[in-house]
Design a protein around this nucleic acid. Structure first.
Lengths: 151, 151
DNA sequence: CTTAGGTGATTGTATATGCATATTTTTTCA
DNA sequence: TGAAAAAATATGCATATACAATCACCTAAG
């Protein structure tokens, strides 16, 4: 029923496209968090990396990318900006290729200061998404194919 | 229960942040569609605009922005690229400020050619998101606050 | 009519994102 | 050991996104 033999019409695409829905809600939700975090000079994309880093202690870029389903080049640039702001610092590693990083004291302080703003945004987002979707998204993330496997 | 008086801990943020979930799934889903559409030289962001334009016939930028919850400056730049590729064309309007646009014949043909690739991506996305979330996202979009209202 | 606002869209600037490619370092294996 | 393959990051390039400021045009107040 969702996979008819006939080529989908433009009307069908308009009515059912999941990318339209995801991307639209992503814009709305991202803007809610960005608005709340703006007084702190922080964007939600950056906060996400700070949180992941805090959880990991010592973060290897490749592992962060894997966890967040983020391209390595994207993370590289984001970390670059966050190092420049003094929120992250690289720590030396035996493997000369690695560039593991961790929170600075300043980065950790920023994250703690951002918690109330995050909570306000989280409430607004939950009001829009509802509890069911909020949980459903978590389940969907659990179903995500592991990185690096073909097709 | 979702709004305790105490400041949320980093662990709480990491475990519950809806922006993390939305943004992660948005990256995954966007990549699925972009991969499917790549042979056509089309990105899903652009296809979304083509579809909306096709549905509207004559599209006024402000109305497209309203429907897609997209910033006017974002749309302006996207339309610019799509005009350059010959997929959209501006039509004259009495009001000298307006810049309404519509599909070109080429744009419509591209959209039709893209339908099978869209369908493949749509199946993959639905396999990850599941039917419940797919419908839930539509409901959430229905709950979105109308543009321009404060708070 | 003339100007003060308002409306619709674009431009300047910054970040986020991903693909393709390059760079550096480590591993493997012949 | 010495070169090829693999791994971890970084760079070049293009697009997407949004806020702030601007530009162009219309409209209403006088």
């Amino acid at each position: 029923m969702t996979t008819p033999k006939t080529k989908p019409s433009i009307d069908t695409i308009a009515a059912e496209c999941l990318a339209v829905r995801m991307r639209m809600l992503n814009r709305v939700v991202t803007n809610i968090y960005d608005d709340a975090l703006r007084p702190l000079g922080l964007k939600v994309s950056q906060m996400n990396i700070l949180v992941a880093t805090a959880k990991m202690g010592m973060a290897r870029p490749a592992e962060v990318c894997h966890r967040l389903h983020l391209d390595a080049s994207t993370l590289s640039r984001n970390v670059e900006r966050m190092k420049a702001r003094g929120w992250l610092e690289v720590v030396p590693d035996e493997d000369g290729r690695a560039q593991p990083f961790r929170l600075t004291a300043q980065g950790r302080k920023l994250l703690q200061k951002a918690a109330p703003a995050w909570q306000k945004a989280q409430r607004k987002a939950r009001a829009i998404l509802g509890d069911e979707i909020a949980e459903g998204l978590k389940d969907a993330i659990g179903r995500l194919p592991s990185e690096g496997l073909p097709e």
